[in-house]
């Protein structure tokens, strides 16, 4: 049993004018892959933003290695080894592929990831390293976004809807790369709308509904009905 290096307890957060999260209890262990599913507006993205410091939370609501880290700046969080692949990729349009990847290493956290290693994982990126990042295809852009997050040498990689808008074959390609990425004990949390994909790639899953956790447990331990109830909040 490995330790839960990151944990949230009763995490609440506001997004804009409205409260978006109402007491989220979440934990993830070293080397674990967890999925977060839920409908649009269930609070999944806000939760990832809360963990990474983009949305402010109470100090005690987020603990890393047992110490309170809530309310810290995104820079402080990334230096603790938490990296986010944001929804919609959000690459820097005026930077080339390689410059985008270098931005990922801005915090200067030591670790195994380097440009060379990334280019071994995604050879196409080396070929295209000098072109503007946003001129790539959707799947290649997603590789850059993941690569950029990896360059910070995270202990926990948060992936927000990385399959959105991509062809099924590309989605498969990207998710097939995940085990290799996580091989060295990195934890991964994926936010997914596609429940099948989420169940396949994760060991445990959380289902969010209207800012609360409606279901939690082993990914293969739920029936279709249980999930759909937790997902939509209606009896089927």
């Amino acid at each position: 049993m490995s330790t839960n290096f990151l944990q949230t307890a009763g995490l609440t957060a506001r997004y804009g004018d409205a409260q978006a999260l109402f007491g989220i209890d979440f934990h993830i262990a070293t080397g674990e892959t967890v999925a977060i599913i839920g409908a649009n507006g269930a609070g999944k993205s806000t939760f990832l933003k809360a963990i990474t410091g983009l949305v402010k939370v109470a100090p005690g609501a987020l603990t890393i290695d047992g110490k309170p880290w809530g309310g810290r700046s995104p820079g402080d969080i990334v230096r603790q080894g938490i990296a986010l692949v944001p929804e919609g990729r959000r690459l820097f349009p005026s930077l080339t592929v390689e410059e985008n990847l270098k931005m990922g290493a801005y915090a200067g956290r030591p670790g195994p990831w380097s440009l060379a290693r990334l280019y071994t994982l995604f050879p196409i990126l080396e070929e295209k390293r000098k072109v503007p990042a946003t001129s790539l295809s959707g799947g290649q852009q997603q590789m850059v976004a993941i690569g950029r997050a990896l360059m910070s040498n995270p202990r926990l990689l948060l992936c927000d809807e990385i399959s959105l808008g991509l062809a099924p074959i590309v989605i498969k390609e990207i998710y097939d790369a995940l085990p290799a990425i996580a091989a060295e004990g990195m934890s991964v949390a994926v936010v997914e709308q596609d429940v099948m994909v989420a169940q396949r790639v994760s060991r445990r899953l959380y289902c969010f509904q209207e800012g609360r956790v409606s279901l939690e447990g082993a990914s293969d331990g739920f029936s279709r009905e249980q999930i759909s109830q937790a997902y939509f909040g209606i009896q089927t």
Binding site: L54, S73, V78, R79, R90, F92, S94, K102
Partner: peptide, 21 residues
């Protein structure tokens, strides 16, 4: 690196902050 940071915050301040800028 400073120049990259200039361009990155200009493109997307939030994501640049995620990288530790």
């Amino acid at each position: 690196p400073l120049g990259r940071a200039f361009r990155a915050v200009s493109d997307d301040r939030e994501v640049a902050e995620l990288m530790g800028v």
